[in-house]
Design a protein around this nucleic acid. Structure first.
Lengths: 200, 200
DNA sequence: CGCACTATGTAGTATCCACTACATATTTTA
DNA sequence: TAAAATATGTAGTGGATACTACATAGTGCG
């Protein structure tokens, strides 16, 4: 249990290996990274890899969890119930645009893009993780804007996926942010109008 | 030239082969379809395949061109210059949503999703084709709504990509259409407001 | 009818894939 | 210090990949 005292030969740091895998998977996607790529980047041999992580898919899951903890959008903060809903959603889109276009290599959302893997196991892992975030948005909207919550949540899902895809295809951070701002302005207008009128 | 009289042993119809490939590539993506899948579906052997199409990537390009001719959104009609711009863009989003969710297997935009292929050659082919459509939207906006044309074109690109991605991930046609309608309403509000005021 | 041509099927190529059996070297425990 | 446990490196597994050399069967043209 006390892994701290265990001064075993460094061999290799498994958490560091997860971080390396996270970067590779984020940059090239699950299918774009081979086991040879991973073992070379970690400077280990395949047997050590499997002893440590079990399989490529399991490591991908650990890398996505690490990504979620480190890089995922802080939905709980952004979607605080006491914020004006349109402002909260706009802030979420803006935060996503900023993050998706931040690095030149690590573009888009690792989890959103992971949903497109050719490997079925990896794809399902990514979907399970990604759906969690979407459900959080849905739950938030059910509370603060129950009328049309589904449509608004779907709009957010589509826009977030679009931002991630556009980022992966090279759209600059500046332009991503502008799109998020446009969408945020749309949301503000729509939800303000929705407060005063009852039917379009 | 007169291919009709050429009663050559049926062997196999190359255009029909492109159609088969189009369906397979659309359903599973470039990397998700192997040469064995293609030759089996066309009921031919690899040598016939290469004699007819040159390579997997070349066939993918032909399949995308076929898709563009048959299924791509009729941008010229949708983006008629004499239409109210917001209405034209809304119609484009709606047409995309309807098409992306039409079939249960052939979901999303074949070209947009092709941009995510792991194979670099295929990816570049898809990007070249897809960028054509986006440039058409940009050119249209430069004409009818020059102020903020870039931001609006980027917004359309992001939303179209998002609709395609959401369709691939299983969002129902009904919900896709609702998202397109929400976005269309946003565009109408924004562009109407933009006509009367000069600063937000 | 016979020759030249073309597309075909058989059977492979080399390469990459994720993954593993086995013996060795290092570390922890007794 | 000796034995047990563990992670390592060497080397290789079967299978899938895109693609092809070669002989043959079917074709149109003379």
């Amino acid at each position: 249990m006390n892994e701290k005292t265990r001064q075993r030969r460094p061999a290799f740091d498994r958490e560091a290996g997860v971080a390396i895998a996270q970067a590779l998977f984020h940059e090239r996607g699950y299918d774009g990274v081979s086991l040879a790529d991973l073992t070379e980047a970690m400077d280990i041999k395949p047997p050590s890899f499997y002893a440590a992580y079990g399989s490529k898919a399991e490591l991908f899951e650990r890398a996505m969890l690490r990504y979620a903890q480190e890089n995922a959008l802080p939905l709980d903060d952004l979607l605080a119930p006491d914020r004006p809903p349109a402002e909260a959603l706009s802030a979420l889109l803006l935060a996503a645009a900023k993050q998706y276009g931040r690095h030149s290599l690590l573009r888009g959302c690792m989890i959103t893009e992971g949903m497109r893997a050719n490997d079925q196991v990896a794809r399902q892992m990514a979907r399970n993780l990604g759906n969690g975030g979407l459900q959080a948005i849905r739950a938030y909207l059910d509370q603060v804007h129950p009328r049309g919550a589904q449509a608004l949540a779907d709009y957010m899902a589509v826009t977030l996926r679009g931002l991630s895809a556009a980022a992966c295809n090279g759209m600059s951070r500046k332009r991503l942010i502008e799109v998020a701002q446009v969408a945020g302005r749309f949301l503000s207008r729509e939800m303000d109008a929705d407060q005063s009128t009852s039917a379009s």
